[in-house]
């Protein structure tokens, strides 16, 4: 069990110093719930790097990190774990090493593989929440289908330019085929035109992380069946019903 010492303190009603600033929002029961939780993050790039960092600091006890890609120079503008030192290294392995530096309560399982049809169910098995931090629409659809089949809530996000979207897909709710109803041969959206500047994934990832926290703790209202859409360039922030 992750964070045994922290859990023991929390169960006695004491808050470990590293979680003091969490407790006003999620309380002791919420922190215990997070430390006992198992979350998979699929993709450890622009979205995933930020999500993993925030989940670790929040104290989510087990994070499975799935990414077969390696850091390249064009990742440096936005991917938190892309540094001069990590170029050429596998993203999942680098992310797990970072989590170990941030929070020793958190156990990680780094899987240096891409999610695909042959391994999707195995990779998500046993997870309580899955985070979609991918950059391919085809892979996102596979992830959504698999998560729904396994009855695991999925927190989706995608970004391009100043725009982004975040939503929660529940097992019995609308799937990502509502967001991506048309097959796109390239598997890409308008990010091929607008790029992916650093602040946009950081914003989307922060909202994604809070979705995970809300789902796990039951605190607040999730974006289940909804899509939060933002365009920072024009200060547009809308909630859409899927």
């Amino acid at each position: 069990m992750a964070g045994k010492d922290s859990l023991a303190l929390l169960e006695r009603g004491e808050i470990p110093p590293r979680y003091q600033r969490n407790s006003g929002t999620i309380g002791i029961a919420g922190q215990i719930r997070l430390l006992q939780a198992r979350v998979a993050v699929v993709g450890a790039g622009g979205l995933g790097g930020n999500v993993i960092e925030l989940l670790a600091r929040q104290g989510v006890g087990f994070i499975r990190i799935i990414d077969g890609d390696r850091f390249e120079p064009h990742n440096l503008n936005r991917q938190l774990f892309a540094t001069h030192h990590t170029l050429g290294m596998n993203k999942a392995l680098v992310a797990a090493a970072r989590v170990a530096e941030v929070n020793s309560d958190v156990q990680t399982h780094a899987i240096p593989e891409m999610l695909a049809e042959h391994n999707a169910e195995t990779l998500l098995d046993g997870m309580e929440v899955v985070v979609d931090a991918l950059d391919s629409i085809a892979c996102r659809l596979l992830l959504s289908q698999t998560a729904q089949k396994l009855k695991i809530p999925l927190v989706h996000a995608a970004i391009a330019g100043f725009t982004g979207q975040v939503g929660t897909i529940l097992p019995d709710g609308p799937g990502l085929d509502k967001v991506y109803p048309t097959n796109i041969p390239s598997g890409k959206g308008i990010e091929t035109l607008l790029g992916t500047p650093g602040p946009t994934p950081a914003l989307a990832a922060a909202i994604q992380t809070q979705e995970v926290v809300k789902i796990l703790t039951g605190i607040g209202q999730t974006l289940a069946g909804k899509l939060f859409y933002f365009d920072i360039g024009l200060n547009i922030y809308e909630i859409l019903l899927l």
């Binding site: 979205l47 982004g164 979207q165 991506y180 048309t182 796109i184 959206g189 308008i190």
Partner: peptide, 10 residues
């Protein structure tokens, strides 16, 4: 009516 293009970046 709102029309949105596909966003897929990460």
């Amino acid at each position: 009516i709102g029309l949105f293009p596909a966003i897929g970046g990460g």
